[in-house]
Design a protein around this nucleic acid. Sequence first.
DNA 1: AATGAATGAGCCTTCATTCAT
DNA 2: AATGAATGAAGGCTCATTCAT
Lengths: 225, 225, 225, 225
Amino acid sequence: MPSSSFLADKVRAVSAKRERRKEARPGELLDAALDLFVEKGFAATRSEEVAARAGVSKGTLFLYFPSKEELFKAVVRENMSGHFPDWNKEFEAFEGSTPDMLRHVMRTWWERIGATRLSGITKLMMSEGSNFPELAAFYQAEVVMPGHELLRRVFRRGVERGEFKPIDIDMAVYTIVAPMIFLMLSKHSSNICMAPSIELDADKYIALQAETLLNGVCSPTGSGA
Amino acid sequence: MPSSSFLADKVRAVSAKRERRKEARPGELLDAALDLFVEKGFAATRSEEVAARAGVSKGTLFLYFPSKEELFKAVVRENMSGHFPDWNKEFEAFEGSTPDMLRHVMRTWWERIGATRLSGITKLMMSEGSNFPELAAFYQAEVVMPGHELLRRVFRRGVERGEFKPIDIDMAVYTIVAPMIFLMLSKHSSNICMAPSIELDADKYIALQAETLLNGVCSPTGSGA
Amino acid sequence: MPSSSFLADKVRAVSAKRERRKEARPGELLDAALDLFVEKGFAATRSEEVAARAGVSKGTLFLYFPSKEELFKAVVRENMSGHFPDWNKEFEAFEGSTPDMLRHVMRTWWERIGATRLSGITKLMMSEGSNFPELAAFYQAEVVMPGHELLRRVFRRGVERGEFKPIDIDMAVYTIVAPMIFLMLSKHSSNICMAPSIELDADKYIALQAETLLNGVCSPTGSGA
Amino acid sequence: MPSSSFLADKVRAVSAKRERRKEARPGELLDAALDLFVEKGFAATRSEEVAARAGVSKGTLFLYFPSKEELFKAVVRENMSGHFPDWNKEFEAFEGSTPDMLRHVMRTWWERIGATRLSGITKLMMSEGSNFPELAAFYQAEVVMPGHELLRRVFRRGVERGEFKPIDIDMAVYTIVAPMIFLMLSKHSSNICMAPSIELDADKYIALQAETLLNGVCSPTGSGA
DNA sequence: AATGAATGAGCCTTCATTCAT
DNA sequence: AATGAATGAAGGCTCATTCAT
């Protein structure tokens, strides 16, 4: 899970120590909601259960979030889309080679999203997105597009610095996204796609995918691999 | 979509002209159900809507299938699990090299399942399986296990004929299953995992995965790749 | 079960031997219906099951009886109310003493109704009568009132012949009816009112009730007991 | 009707004025449910109607009782089985002769159950028990068995104190239960078992049954009658 | 006369959301 | 701010009855 909480940060500024409980409410609700959305999906998660897991009453949930859909959006903002400004800055400041940057991006993605509960959100959107068009549009706009844009910037940097060949950038983005998504889905559906006993080694898989990709995009004189 | 209908075949034998309506019912219902399950998922598909799409009333659906869960199972049987006997025979009769057989299996899988509405069933099970344990168990027993067994037989053949190295067969099976599942999911969630404009070229992707796999499993003297 | 079938009698008059099957329909349906009404009650008996037990289709049932209520009425007519003319004649012809007649009435009631499936109809009416007012009214008019009238005639005979004291006849009728009903209910509800192992000896109980009653109503010079 | 309410008692302890509504709910619902179960039977009572009679909406009923069956069980517990501890104590403290105790038990039974709406529950179980096996088992365990045990204790006391002959106690219990059940059923079906104008005098009937029974079980030197 | 496919009103139960306290 | 009682629309399933063949 990402280290800081947006909503909580705002509230915390106004708070004193003894009131920690009250101000923690939204954060506790978001945390409980994330757990349950990941565990059961959007439709099958009951508002009351979210409230109960956060230790508050049903009414309180609706005090902070006007609907289940808004609760979901807040979960996504808190844990994913809200972090893009930071992530963008972080990668703008990257100083190494672009192949190294690409490796770093993929590892970071796995650490912050793939390996955490958040991978369940990706799975959820792929499964239930079509039943909740507004959520799908929100997720597309606030997560998918910024994420792809971040990746595009990496490839553009590589091309501009002469490290990458003049590739089709959208296609290249997809070549990263596809195996990452695949890895995240595997985590949440091992009973359907593989023998229960087998667990994929994500780090190796990612490293392999990265090198395969770099092999294809690096210019002959580049510092890839 | 598979070419012949099990239920319909049985009923058809008894039919006359004026009864075309009656005997077509189960097939029409299964067809409507498949459409809706794929479009909306299991929980979000309403019985009445299935009936309406098949042109009958709510009650009629329950005349043929005693519950929504049984309807789903019938859809799976009709379109997937019911075909394993044929598919098994088909592959037992395969006469080419095992690498070619593997390529053939993957292409066939894509043609008969992945590229059709049926890929939606796989997606459905991955997203809703945990909310409907009985369905999950049914799907696991009637689709996942026979499918894996079919693949295992291919690998065993390769090993026995000296075309493949003495590999970990379960792991090898998974190496096929994983990208196929990913491809199927992508079809149903293209807006989530990639830019809306980009469509994955399934055939190329499958071919690539096949060659990558063969590269790893073929014995040095084998005819792979 | 009473020996002859009214409906069947009418139909039989027109019938030939080889058509026995067709003409037996109504009787078979009534027989199946009686079984099921007794076993499950009126509301819980499904039309289809009646038809199935009679070996015909659902539609055929409604061909003979326009509704479930009419089917029930037909069952009652066939097995109970329809026999009152005969029973009345039978008792008008009785030649012994009135105390003997009373004993005979009670024994006969038990043999023909109480000891047979028909006691279940009495239980059914007591349980479900209030939910089906039309059936209750029908039963009241066609069974209860004629039955009470038959008993009243016995008491009137006793009084007129000087065998009985000038008693309150309605009250006397009730003194017979109560234990008979009680006995019939016991048969169908042994799990509720008594230990499953204990079974009441109906004949002794009836004899006892008869003598107790006669003890109270016989005039001092009467030939009771 | 029993004098105090179990559920209500517990809730009342926590209550304030404005909450009178809330705490009264379970009691109101149980009361409405008892009315309707007695009036229409279990199957024919619609959840919504229970709610409406209690002045709440359909959903509210399920807030307090998770299903119609549980509602019924709660009605039985509140009004019948929940009182056995008190009743047992009450009779353990009885100090008179055992024949008097038996007369008292029967009168009390009539006052607290037979003469109240609760006799309708007995009727309901006799008619619908076989259609709802779980309810039947519950009633058997929580009402029938404790009730019979109470009666058995009375007879054992009589035998131990030398007031009764060494009788078959199970048989004796049945000799009490049977006429009580009959009386209760009569109340709810007077149009079936007797002329509408005649109403059975329960007290006299009970007294008569008691003396008849005592006549049979009292030891020659006993203080019966 | 017989069939059995088809209907649709009716009932239990769930759950997101509201609102008086 | 917090509660949790209350609501009511929605959905799965049943079954008496109809009707085309």
